[in-house]
């Protein structure tokens, strides 16, 4: 019989003490998800399209200076501020805990991006183009978004679906570690851990128990499904406790 998949809640843990800001996740995501090549103009106009990006910020000044890296991606919020403002229901929450963006529904109002406190959404201001030969690389599992469409991190839903189908073909449930999103798979320091938080034995559940755990802009009540583990710095200056 057809069965709706077991109830799931996909989560990711980002360990900022492991993250080195090396950008492997960023490029892996570009490759996996058919994200348009960011040209100079994308960056100059603040319209660079990255589903996961690494923000760098400074603390202090020479010689006592620190640079911090935080990977940002769609937080897949339980109370996602982007969802209620979409006039065409192109973004909604599904029963896997994913904040889904339906490209064929999107009409490009960009209300969702304005309402996202994490700047996690990218808008296709231009028709994506690739040199003809490079189109051979495009992932057939992922829709190429045209101009005027909003897009964002999907937790590599195409990999989730592939893993589900493979499990179905083998007559079993999806197991922890069957697949990872492209960013987590590439991450050389294993700073990104992904899995189903409803599975008590999953690695993501284990990682999320850390005492360093916090979520971005938790005070907004967005209930993000991306959990951050704070950077440890024995020499932190003026580090206040997290509110």
């Amino acid at each position: 019989m057809v069965s709706t998949p077991r109830e799931r809640k996909w989560q990711m843990v980002v360990d900022m003490d492991r993250c080195t800001g090396c950008q492997a996740c960023v490029v892996a995501c570009q490759v996996e998800n058919n994200i348009p090549i960011n040209s100079e103009s994308h960056y100059q106009q603040g319209r660079a399209m990255q589903w996961i990006r690494i923000e760098r910020y400074w603390e202090g000044e020479f010689p006592n200076v620190k640079a911090r890296f935080i990977p940002f991606l769609c937080q897949q919020c339980n109370n996602a501020p982007c969802e209620p403002v979409c006039p065409v229901f192109a973004t909604y929450h599904n029963n896997e805990g994913l904040n889904v963006q339906v490209y064929n529904r999107c009409v490009g109002t960009r209300f969702c991006a304005n309402n996202c406190p994490y700047h996690a959404r990218s808008f296709n201001f231009w028709e994506p183009v690739w040199p003809e030969a490079m189109r051979n690389q495009l992932n057939p599992d992922v829709t190429v978004r045209s101009r005027g469409i909003m897009e964002k991190c999907t937790f590599c839903i195409q990999r989730i679906r592939r893993a589900e189908l493979d499990a179905k073909r083998e007559g079993r449930e999806v197991r922890d570690g069957d697949f990872q999103p492209a960013c987590a798979q590439a991450c050389p320091t294993s700073a990104l851990v992904f899995g189903d938080s409803k599975d008590p034995a999953s690695r993501v559940n284990e990682a999320a128990k850390s005492s360093r755990r916090f979520r971005l802009r938790e005070e907004l009540g967005t209930e993000p499904n991306v959990i951050y583990l704070s950077k440890v710095d024995p020499e932190a200056r003026g580090a206040a406790g997290h509110a």
Binding site: D17, E55, Y57, E59, R68, I70, F72, S211, R212, F214, L216, R217, Y228, S230, K231, V232, D233, P234, A236, A239, A240, G241, H242, A243
Partner: peptide
């Protein structure tokens, strides 16, 4: 504006 958010991340010694 994200800098402001991150400044009160606990930077404790684990």
């Amino acid at each position: 504006d994200f800098r402001a958010v991150e400044e009160h991340v606990p930077l404790s010694t684990a």
